[in-house]
Design a protein around this nucleic acid. Sequence first.
DNA 1: CGGTTGTTTGACGAAAATCAAATTGAGTGG
DNA 2: CCACTCAATTTGATTTTCGTCAAACAACCG
Lengths: 231, 231
Amino acid sequence: MKKSKDLCDVKSCFLCSLCVKEWLPAVEIHKKNLDYKKGELIFGEGDEVKGIYFIYKGKVKVHQKWGDDKELIIRFATSGGIFGHRGIGKEKNYPVSATALEPTTVCFIEKEFFLSSLKVNPTLMFELMMFYSNELQESEKRMKDLAHMSVKGRVASCLLSLKNTFGLDEENFLDVTLSRQDIASFSGTTYETAFRVMNELVTENSVKVIGKKIALLNTEHLQNVIERESK
Amino acid sequence: MKKSKDLCDVKSCFLCSLCVKEWLPAVEIHKKNLDYKKGELIFGEGDEVKGIYFIYKGKVKVHQKWGDDKELIIRFATSGGIFGHRGIGKEKNYPVSATALEPTTVCFIEKEFFLSSLKVNPTLMFELMMFYSNELQESEKRMKDLAHMSVKGRVASCLLSLKNTFGLDEENFLDVTLSRQDIASFSGTTYETAFRVMNELVTENSVKVIGKKIALLNTEHLQNVIERESK
DNA sequence: CGGTTGTTTGACGAAAATCAAATTGAGTGG
DNA sequence: CCACTCAATTTGATTTTCGTCAAACAACCG
């Protein structure tokens, strides 16, 4: 982790796009731009909450340990996204970890400054609340999936969710590199089972796998898999 | 559903306890107090979002259908609690249903008025944000449970969660009456399996069941069950 | 008394986790 | 460039858990 010289100027970052003009200079003073290497831990479960993170460039996974070897990936975030936002609550320590999936630059705002900013910037607060609302929606949707869907449905759902977050390139490859273990952890299943199910989807021609890259050839079919599970 | 003559004056209801003095008269005008019978549907999946609900007295479950006969209970709420709050987002329709578990009086605030109230009342907005933050925390915790815990662990976790929400009376009975089906739906399992697991817990002397009432005799043991699952 | 509905229990099978082993692949140092 | 190691991938076999189905039983009610 080192300090980056770049300043955050992501258009889609709502920290920057929504703050009032008068606030900008203050942000420039208080924010720290930090770089993380691929695989580097940004914060871990139990760490004290220091502030909130906005992704300038890169990709991050937010995950939670389970036993010694298992984990569940809660969500992913990419350029313009937020994480560590649950520190803005009554919890003093993070209940989750965050890890960079690739070289990532974030801008970090200390909790105290961010909280006082919220108080004087209703628009920012409102947008953050909307963000929470959507996260909650998403979270409860996944809760339902995990409760009642088969692994195949969950993997399909997970792939579509990845498409949503990271998008596809011109050849329909997901614009992110994930290990099989990550796919499994995001689907809430084991490495081996995730592997088998991915193979199924490959033989059904809705997914192509080249090394670590995954292409979605037939999202409609994935959607059908999910529908079928919901009957 | 009929209009109640009582006005909401629940101390713990943050709508009332946190709104600025000047706002109170406006609330009195805009709010509608509504009564629901036991089992009555307050709103259903797909219904248009009209506003937000604060529970004056009673108990409510928020749930989601799954197929024809299955459902997942997302959360419970009781006196002083909020529901329908996810309508305060970009969704135009509820993704969930809400049903009264017993005779319930709510105070209902129209979305437009509530939104404009948020804009002029930062404290209210801040508290609502904190509420969202905690809900999100809770939701992600349950997500993890559903993904990696056995049914027994989930039932134990569900019972402790019920204790948290509704509390125990002097004889350690949960202060809520739920059908077995509700226990199953909240634990994310089937009626029969929930039944068997409850029996196990009864023979282990950590739970007592008399008719529809459930007593938690040994919460420590329930906690142990959960711990054991997390290894 | 039949009929309907909810509870309880048993038996079975499907799905998925676990375990174990074989295969591949990617460095690493000689 | 070639062994060698270590980790990741792939596959098969086994076991567990849990959902499903069905039947027995109790309870409630007109």
